[in-house]
């Protein structure tokens, strides 16, 4: 598979199933890559995978989750001590990994619904696929709750979220991004998705997440993050500035070499002290548990 093939397969996956996380699509693409690969040595195959990853990252999809997913895939797949038959073994491993990943979201959702009480009021930000699934699953369990979702400028995905949730019978209201402080006293808990979970235990997520977390903390409301483990990234931002640029700005902006100080970042970093619990397919974790998991995943 060449680069174009990779990219088109990747995009096709996402088109077919809009619910799919970008990382999952990327991993599926990589599995396909291994299947169809004509590489002769292990290192050649590895390079192919790396190239493919680069290509997919040029797309306008969540950089954080795609890069972490692919990196974990690579680690997982090439852990074996291989000589001949490396392709078959790698393929086997790749498929196992994919299976685990596909189960990940449902496991995560299962964990999270336990924390939604009957009569709860939930605040969420933008339209995270995982959070949507969690809320829908909770509604299916006949729990009654209301949801406030932020508009989530600049892409206004909040309205999409509202539409989706209302279809499932969950009373949802869209609020202005600036109204988070106003609404916080009515809210019982905050549930957020994440594009990436970093080593400190904090998260990288759509811009606007950080102020929500701060407001929630100052008013003693719990903040829960729902994220599958393939979103765990090997990065440790110290502050907002320290978040790598390729997370913050779309690829097109970076390629065009615009003056970044005039650009609006797409994501922000929320430090771990503002997060109460993280629901992952590895279980319910406290932010401090994250680095433990990361070590397991990457080493």
């Amino acid at each position: 598979m060449d680069n174009d093939g990779v990219l088109s397969h990747f995009k096709e996956q996402l088109r077919e199933d809009p619910e799919m996380s970008a990382a999952v699509a990327a991993i599926k693409t990589l599995v396909k890559l291994i299947e169809t690969s004509r590489a002769g040595t292990l290192s050649e195959l590895r390079d192919n995978i790396k190239n493919a990853t680069e290509v997919m990252l040029t797309g306008e999809y969540s950089y954080a989750s795609v890069s972490s997913g692919c990196e974990q895939f690579l680690r997982n797949v090439s852990l074996a001590n291989l000589d001949r038959n490396f392709k078959t073994v790698m393929l086997e491993r790749a498929n196992i990994f994919l299976k685990e990943i596909l189960k990940a979201r449902s496991k995560t959702v299962q964990m999270a619904t336990r924390f939604i009480d009957d009569g709860a009021t939930i605040l969420t930000h933008c339209r995270s696929r995982v959070v949507m699934q969690v809320l829908k699953a909770a509604a299916k369990e006949n729990k009654r709750f209301t949801v406030y979702v932020t508009e989530s400028n600049p892409d206004q995905s909040g309205y999409g979220a509202q539409e989706e949730l209302t279809k499932h019978g969950i009373p949802t209201t869209v609020i202005l991004d600036a109204a988070v402080g106003y609404i916080m006293e009515r809210v019982q808990l905050v549930m957020l998705g994440a594009e990436g979970v970093v080593e400190s235990g904090g998260i990288i997520n759509k811009i606007g997440t950080y102020p929500i977390a701060i407001t929630a903390k100052s008013m003693n409301k719990p903040v829960y993050v729902v994220a599958e483990s393939f979103k765990f990234v090997r990065a440790f931002p110290l502050n907002q500035k320290d978040v790598p640029d390729h997370f913050k700005y779309p690829q097109s902006t970076l390629r065009a070499q615009k003056d970044l100080s005039k650009e609006h970042p797409l994501v922000d970093y929320t430090p771990p002290e503002y997060i109460d619990l993280m629901f992952t397919d590895q279980g319910v974790l406290t932010p401090s548990a994250v680095s433990d998991e990361l070590i397991k995943l990457y080493c």
């Binding site: 279980g283 974790l285 406290t286 932010p287 401090s288 548990a289 433990d292």
Partner: peptide, 11 residues
């Protein structure tokens, strides 16, 4: 132990 380490013990 720190209270945040509790998760490890649970595991």
């Amino acid at each position: 132990q720190s209270v945040t380490y509790v998760y490890r013990l649970v595991k």
